[in-house]
Structures are given as structure tokens and as C-alpha cells.
Amino acid sequence: MMAPILKVENLSVELKTKEGTSPVIDNLSFELNAGETLSFVGESGCGKSMTALGIMGLLPEKISRVSSGRILFQGEDLASVTQKRLQEIRGNEISMIFQEPMTSLNPVYTIGEQIGEILRRHKGLNRKQSFLQALDLIEAVQIPDTKNKIHSYPFQLSGGQRQRVMIAMALACEPKILVADEPTTALDVTVQAQIFDLLKELRVKTNTAIILITHDMGVVYEMAQKMIVMYAGRKVEEGSVNQVIKSPAHPYTQGLISCVPHLTEKQPEVRERLLEIPGIVPGLTSFGLNKCLFESRCHKSVEKCLSSKPDSQSISTGHQANCWNLGK
């Protein structure tokens, strides 16, 4: 077994609010191997995007910071390297795709220039070389009419095409890790499927590990090998996608999965009412309290949930959940 390419150890990220600081990511640890897809799921405001930004070193300055823990990328701690080193890594070895393809491209440059720019910066290519390689990349992400499209401005492309350009930019330097923060939420369903097919294909080609942030269980099932369920800044369950989706252990995961209609094998004539998780994610002020933060929404909660933060409990190899009531 190779050493993991990314190893996050006890990462905590603090966010400053009016009421004081609260840990938006609380003691998060995970490992990512080369060529693997790891998915983060959870509701909005659970710290998924903050995790992504934390790895990229792009946490909003002044209001947030890594308060403890390490982000080891090939043995190098990204939480403590210099800005200059981070700039070398970003886009070259770790790159990121954003939620909004409509606004993630610079409107004043052609897409060819934007892709070529990254190649020139990280790979030291000259103008001509970078242009030719940009042409290849645009072809690789299956944008038709490549020769003309390379001279288009972002506003001349559709949303799906823009996201393809983003992917081309992210993969330009064949990064070791690709962080995809809800890459398809802004796109319609058919385009979504195409984008994921493309990502899968490129992953096989380049052996890039993908960190996929989403709240769509269907996408997780299709794309990822491992998944981490986050709730209120904490990891509540971790395991292979099969383990977690087939036999979710944490009540929150169970709730999330029972919310999704199309994961059943046979569609009954009369569908049962979908279950929902009552309540909402707790406010930032209660993040970091020494209790189970899901307690107020949980039907299984016992007294212990109120008095101490649940530890990680192993269920089977590689599958673990943070809950006091497993198996009860």
C-alpha cells in the first residue's frame, strides 16, 4: 500500500464571528490515496467548502484560520508553508473547480489565454507551446469546434462548456489532487452527467485523486470510492461508499440517505413518504461544544449525547461513525 497523497490530521479551522470564534471544522482527519475519489457530503453550512478552502490555503483571511492540525500533502504541511510555496502548489499539484462556472472565468480573457496562462506559469512553456497544449486540453474536455472555441470569451460559452473549461484549467498541469466543490450544482441534470463522465474518464487517464464536495447522494454513489459525512464541522461517519450507503450507522447519515428518493432498487407503485430530518443545523455559536451537535435533531438521543462529544467508533474495516448509540 502506497503512502496516502494527502493526509489531514486533526484539522481545526476557526471562524471569527460577532459572538467570538467558533470552530467551523472541528478535529477533522482523513486520508486520500492517489487516483481515489473521496466525497464529502452534508447539509449546507457543515464545513464542506471550508475543508476544501482549507486544503487549498484559501480560507478567507482575517476571519478564519487553521487553529490546529496538519494538512500533509506528500509529507509537506500545507498549513504552515509560505504563500510562495502555496502559489507553486496551487493549480499545479492541487487544483480546484468551483460551484459557479458562470462566474469562475475571467471575462476579459479568451479561454485559450486563461488555460495557456496556467501552463506558462507552472510549466514554464512559451506562448506557442502553451497555446498548442491548451488546444489539446480543450479537446480533451470535449468542447466541439476546438480551433474556434479557443479564441472565445467566457460569455460566449454555455454553462456546461464553461465548467469544461474550468476542468481543463484545473487539469492543465496534471495535478495530483483535484478539489471539486459542488462542480455541477449550477448545471442542469444532463450536463451534470456529462461532466461527471468526463471527470471519471480524466481521473483514469491522469490518476488524479479527487475530493468531491456535494450534497447529492446519487453523485457520491456514482463517482466516489470513499465518503465522509460531515455535520456541523465534524466528521460523523466515514467509510467506503458501499459501506456507508448500504448500511449507514450514524442517525444523520441514515436521515440523509432516506431523504433521497432514487436509491431504492425497485420503485413501488405507491411511494412511501420520504423521511426528513427534523430541525436545522445548529448555529455557529454551538459549534465546538462538548456534546453531540446532532442531538437536538436525533430520534435516538440519550443523556450521554448532551454531556460529551461522541468518539469515533469502528463498525467494520474502514467504516467508522461518531455516535454513542451505534448498534442500539
Binding site: 487549498m56 484559501l58 510562495k84 502559489q87 507553486e88 502548489i89 496551487r90 493549480g91 499545479n92 487544483s95 480546484m96 468551483f98 460551484q99 459557479e100 462566474t103 469562475s104 472565468l105 475571467n106 471575462p107 496556467i118 506559469r121 507552472h122 474550468m166 484549467m169 484545473a170
Partner: peptide
């Protein structure tokens, strides 16, 4: 705007 964040994520320096 998001494209500034995206540029930063692709390794652009402050000057750039």
C-alpha cells in the same frame, strides 16, 4: 468575484 478566487486557486500571485 469568483473568478478572482479561481485564479488564486490556480496559483496566481498577488501581483498577477
Amino acid at each position: 468575484l469568483e473568478f478572482v478566487m479561481a485564479s488564486r486557486a490556480s496559483g496566481a500571485s498577488d501581483f498577477r
